[in-house]
Amino acid sequence: MQRVLSQAYFHSIGPFLARNCRGMASELQKPVETSIRSKLTETFQPVVLEVLNESHMHSVPKGSETHFKVVVVSDKFESIPLIKRHRLVNESLQEELNSGVHALSIVAKTCKQWEDSGQKIGKSPPCMGGAGL
């Protein structure tokens, strides 16, 4: 038996499909960013999480996912020194760092530190293209 779906049915699910298809398309187009976001969320349950793809600031092909800045604000960083926070973030992203992520800038703060900072992060410096070494 063939089922005929009404126009009203498609009208009712249209917004749902559009939202979810866009999200799926974004994940397919940005697999490394999506993986970073997922792993940091799972590991740190952050109050604030920003994953910024800064690859466009470097000499890489358009659409690359090689240079990132992450901002992770989590209560899990309470009483943990900054260097250990960075190590924890690096450990959680080891797979990405071993398979194409060339640079990772980390801002790892407690909720109080985030509030005290005015909830602002500094701009990343321009790419030196290797000439500055």
Rank of each mutant, 00 (worst) to 15 (best):
Q2S: 11
R3K: 14
L5P: 02
Q7N: 12
Q7M: 07
A8I: 11
F16I: 12
A18L: 14
A18T: 10
A18K: 15
R19K: 14
N20Y: 15
N20C: 07
C21W: 13
C21E: 08
R22M: 10
M24P: 05
K30E: 14
S35G: 09
I36Y: 04
I36T: 08
L40A: 05
T43I: 11
F44K: 10
Q45L: 06
P46Q: 13
V47S: 11
V48F: 09
L49F: 10
E50Y: 04
V51R: 13
N53M: 05
S55P: 06
S59T: 05
V60W: 03
T66R: 10
T66V: 03
H67E: 00
F68G: 06
K69I: 03
D75F: 00
F77T: 04
F77V: 03
I80E: 02
P81R: 11
I83N: 04
H86G: 05
L88S: 03
L88I: 02
N90L: 08
N90R: 12
Q94C: 00
L97D: 07
L97T: 09
L97H: 09
G100H: 02
H102T: 01
H102F: 01
H102S: 04
A103G: 09
L104R: 04
L104A: 02
I106D: 11
V107H: 06
K109P: 00
W114T: 06
S117M: 06
G118C: 05
Q119C: 06
K120L: 06
I121P: 01
I121E: 08
S124K: 04
P126Q: 13
M128K: 12
G130M: 11
L133E: 04
